[in-house]
């Protein structure tokens, strides 16, 4: 099905789902872009800016589609710059401050492993415009996964200091990974309509791939914490998202409609 043949009953759930996908990409892209000019060395600085650009590209495509599905005339820019924190649907994992380089890399690795599996599955989506974006995004996310996996090995199996920092980032981030695979009514509706994949089949694959790289990186898989962070998909965020938006949205809020 496409925009014309989409069942109106599915629109609210699909809009919500596209916001989730688009907001994950947008917020992670913004965090990555914060490294521009601050990378540990020139090539890595360029690499992180490239990854940020890919994420913004995915966000633009997904949020444009979200606006079309919603049918209220909102553009990707409207959705990115004119919503408040409680209207954002990204997981908390992507909004956490960028931390040190190890923290950024570990988060990138955990997310890219998830995104590669998700976009691969979404290529089979019954909603054709989403399947098209997923096919493109999948190609690009594979580079992210290769880049971050390489770094996981360098940091984990590197010096005592790099190992300590990577392990500490991993321990800190682990409680934010449960949210990636959460299933609620929105997702169930779309899985039933064959628009979204069954997350229960993706999670074990994610876990297996993550553990393989962690082993090679001589890092220890954290124990599952008693509490997994949750709420981002329903607009409950950490305090960090508001600060991020204050910076990201400043120009459009202060000078509405400004262009250059």
């Amino acid at each position: 099905m496409n925009l014309e043949t989409l069942d109106d009953a599915l629109r609210p759930a699909l809009f919500e789902y596209l916001l989730r996908l688009g907001d994950d990409a947008l917020i992670l892209g913004h965090r990555l872009s914060e490294w521009c000019g601050h990378g540990p060395y020139l090539e890595e600085d360029i690499a992180l800016a490239n990854l940020a650009l890919d994420c913004l590209g995915h966000a633009e495509a997904l949020l444009t589609l979200a606006g079309e599905v919603e049918g209220q005339g909102r553009t990707a820019d409207d959705l990115a710059f004119l919503r408040d924190a409680y209207d954002f649907r990204n997981v908390q994992l992507v909004e956490l401050p960028r931390g040190d380089f190890a923290f950024t890399i570990v988060r990138q690795f955990l997310y890219a492993t998830y995104a590669c599996l998700l976009y691969k599955a979404l290529q089979q989506s019954a909603f054709e415009p989403l399947a098209g974006i997923a096919a493109k995004a999948h190609k690009e996310m594979q580079y992210h996964l290769r880049h971050s996996s390489e770094w996981m090995r360098c940091l984990g199996d590197g010096t005592e200091e790099s190992h300590r920092r990577a392990q500490s980032a991993l321990d800190e981030l682990w409680m934010y990974t449960g949210e990636l695979f959460e299933v609620d009514d929105t997702l169930r509706t779309l899985t039933e309509a064959r628009i979204a994949p069954d997350m229960a089949t993706l999670q074990p694959k994610w876990r297996e791939q993550v553990e393989t790289v962690l082993r090679e990186a001589t890092l220890t898989v954290p124990e599952d914490p008693p509490y997994m962070a949750t709420g981002g998909r329903h607009g409950h965020h950490t305090e960090h998202l508001g600060h991020l938006l204050a910076e990201m949205q400043f120009l459009q809020r202060a000078y509405p409609g400004a262009q250059w």
Partner: peptide
């Protein structure tokens, strides 16, 4: 390869 990423998204160094 000195970097998998270059001055534009399509190129490596």
């Amino acid at each position: 390869q000195t970097s998998a990423f270059g001055a534009t998204a399509c190129k490596a160094l």
